[in-house]
Design a protein around this nucleic acid. Structure first.
Length: 182
DNA sequence: CCCTGATTCGC
DNA sequence: GCGAATCAGG
């Protein structure tokens, strides 16, 4: 559905009445709160009055925004190990090749242990199916390599800026403090 | 964690 | 113009 005159009118009215963007989106239907906020801005309605000033939003300059790198997803993840995967890398990292696990190290669902990487390998319908089985990173179900693969940020929107250095292990290891084990 | 509005930019 | 993704805050 699109922004018909009626829907725009309702948006203007609800916005002026102080409803939040998500509340308005709920009443309009077929739109997200992001769509509502976007429309509010395009209509020039942003910056509602008034009772208690919205103090905290100093508008960031265009320059500041231009310099701010686009951070990958998971930056706000509640999992410190996931955040650690990206705290020293702001770039998309292409998935690694599948790793060949030596037969002796392979784990089945029966032989997995508490600290085994649970990255599945192969077709579960075949007897060759197994798990990576190497030591996993604390807080995550995967070893370091597979954690990077599992928590890929979304591919960059801009085609340039591809190959950048892979995140170092330091951040992960820093988050691997045994005291934090859940 | 929940939520809020703000902003960018591919579409 | 649209709005998802992501941000900075509360």
């Amino acid at each position: 559905m699109s922004w018909t005159d009626e829907r725009v009118d309702l948006l203007k009215r609800l916005w002026s009445e102080g409803l939040s963007a998500s509340q308005i989106a709920g009443r309009l239907g077929s739109v997200t709160r992001n769509a509502v906020i976007g429309k509010v801005h395009r209509l020039g309605l942003s910056g509602r009055a008034t009772t208690s000033r919205m103090k905290t939003h100093r508008p960031r300059s265009r320059m500041a925004n231009a310099k701010r790198p686009v951070k990958p997803r998971f930056a706000q993840s509640g999992n410190p190990a996931v955040r650690a995967l990206y705290m020293d890398s702001e770039a998309y990292v292409p998935p690694a090749e599948e790793i060949e696990i030596p037969l002796a190290e392979r784990k089945t669902i029966q032989t997995l242990t508490e600290c085994s990487c649970r990255w599945p390998i192969g077709d579960p319908q075949t007897p060759e199916f197994h798990f990576c089985g190497r030591t996993k990173v604390p807080l995550l179900p995967y070893c370091e390599v597979h954690a990077r693969r599992a928590f890929q940020p979304v591919a960059p929107r801009r085609r340039e800026r591809t190959e950048v250095e892979s995140p170092t292990a330091t951040a992960i290891l820093a988050a691997a403090d045994p005291k934090q084990r859940a």
